[in-house]
């Protein structure tokens, strides 16, 4: 069994003539909460789309728990849970119906019990029979998270999970991420541009700028080196060039 939950080797992605991801080489160990930082358009979502097998890279290789995302995509998918930014489900169906459908596609056998257990874990059993179209943003995010962890994946991908949430929602999400990591031993890969959240939640970080990975280390090492949360922000700003042509210091 591979020690790494995520391995990428020179993964590149170009749309037309635009290079969205430039030779990304990254290793994330099992059990980590990895914060993937970067400005808007840095290539974070493209990275998650590639790692969740939704998008084929134009160059390079990537593996999830040792399974190649192209040649062994179905096994790679069995290892992952995915909650996209602004989670959307079938509005006309209840949370339970949406979760049942996605659980069935994941090949879960005891579907109803799994849904109950997952909703209980997330503290949102009251949303079970409500139509998704009637849920608030925060409630949708919870059901979105529920669908991503139904099959207890080894690696959970969260794309801007705190986007649009109020401070209370952000706090609850943070606690949830830490619990999922601790109680279910999930490796969590979290795209975000909220530096404060990364400092409070993650165990390691990577910084992406204009498609290039410009920095990666453990949070512990970052804190030892730079001191506090504010220093993390300074680090982020120092390694993120304002223009693509600017060299990283």
């Amino acid at each position: 069994m591979s020690d790494f939950a995520i391995q990428t080797d020179q993964v590149s992605m170009s749309y037309g003539g635009h290079l969205a991801l430039d030779q990304l080489t990254l290793n994330v160990k099992r059990g980590e909460i990895f914060g993937f930082l970067g400005h808007n358009g840095a290539g974070k979502t493209t990275t998650v789309n590639i790692l969740t097998t939704l998008l084929k890279p134009t160059f390079g290789q990537a593996k999830i728990c040792g399974f190649d995302i192209i040649s062994d995509a179905l096994n790679a998918r069995r290892q992952i849970g995915y909650a996209p930014e602004n989670i959307r489900l079938y509005d006309a169906m209840t949370s339970q119906e949406n979760l049942r459908f996605l659980a069935q596609l994941s090949g879960i056998e005891n579907v109803d019990k799994t849904i109950d257990d997952t909703l209980e874990l997330l503290g949102c059993q009251d949303l079970k029979v409500r139509r998704v179209g009637t849920l608030s943003k925060g409630q949708r995010q919870r059901i979105g998270l529920a669908q991503a962890i139904l099959h207890r994946p080894s690696v959970l991908f969260l794309d801007e999970p705190a986007s649009g949430l109020d401070p209370m929602g952000v706090q609850m999400l943070r606690d949830l991420i830490v619990r999922l990591n601790a109680e279910l031993s999930m490796t969590i890969f979290m795209n975000t541009h909220l530096i404060g959240e990364v400092a409070k939640t993650c165990t390691s970080i990577g910084v992406l700028s204009h498609g290039k990975l410009v920095y990666t280390d453990t949070i512990k090492a970052v804190m030892e080196r730079f001191g506090d949360d504010e220093a993390l922000e300074n680090l982020y700003l120092s390694v993120t060039p304002t223009s693509k042509n600017q060299e990283v210091a």
């Binding site: 969740t52 096994n75 998918r77 995915y82 996209p84 079938y90 994941s106």
Partner: peptide, 18 residues
């Protein structure tokens, strides 16, 4: 079209099905 409109299609495509 419902999967594309609702945004469920990427969730389906990330499941272990072809």
């Amino acid at each position: 079209s419902v999967d594309r409109k609702s945004g469920v299609y990427p969730l389906m495509a990330s499941r272990p099905i072809g």
